[in-house]
Design a protein around this nucleic acid. Structure first.
Lengths: 89, 89
DNA sequence: CCAACGATTCAATGCTCATTGATTCAACGG
DNA sequence: CCGTTGAATCAATGAGCATTGAATCGTTGG
């Protein structure tokens, strides 16, 4: 993982709305309408932030009829946790 | 730690130059001039990024004569690692 | 004291990003 | 088929950030 893409991944975490979305998804798969109720933002703005998270690879989307469910991309998030800087071992 | 300050901390990680600085400091305390050699950016730009990291609480500065040494704020970085979103346990 | 050096600050510029309102798309139900 | 609902896209706006060049501050050595 390059330094640039790592910085891009952290910048996906660098927004309160996106952190709230991720925290909500920590409880399991949620459709956009459920997220909208929990996070309380305009639908189009929520779509924008979900798109940012999707393109950063931190969540995945699954259409289910009229609804679209999102869930955490746990592998990517684990990798990101391991990439937080720290003292060399 | 509020959602906003958490987002602010992640935004401090959301830059390639700052990640390089932190990686360099992972090897231990370094003065600005050493960082400048390792990261290869203009002195004033390096100062700017160090200031961002300082204000985010991710590094600390210590003057030593003409030089200023920086080192990682390990406690804050550990906390940040623990704050990366993930599945609820 | 002053010249040099390490580091920081300041002002200005360009660019990216979050937000908003309006529009469009996709899927289902009557 | 058409109206509705959930979701995404588009265009425009404003604010914040990274970068640059120039100036300034603090410390040391001659």
């Amino acid at each position: 993982m390059s330094i640039e893409s790592l910085a891009a991944a952290f910048s996906a975490l660098a927004d309160p709305i996106r952190l709230q979305v991720l925290a909500s998804l920590g409880g399991g798969r949620r459709c956009v309408c459920e997220l909208k109720d929990e996070v309380d933002v305009a639908p189009n703005l929520l779509s924008y932030h979900l798109r940012v998270l999707r393109e950063a690879g931190l969540v995945t989307a699954h259409r289910r009829g009229r609804w679209v469910d999102y869930e955490l991309a746990s592998v990517a998030l684990e990798a990101l946790r391991g990439a937080v800087p720290g003292e060399d071992v």
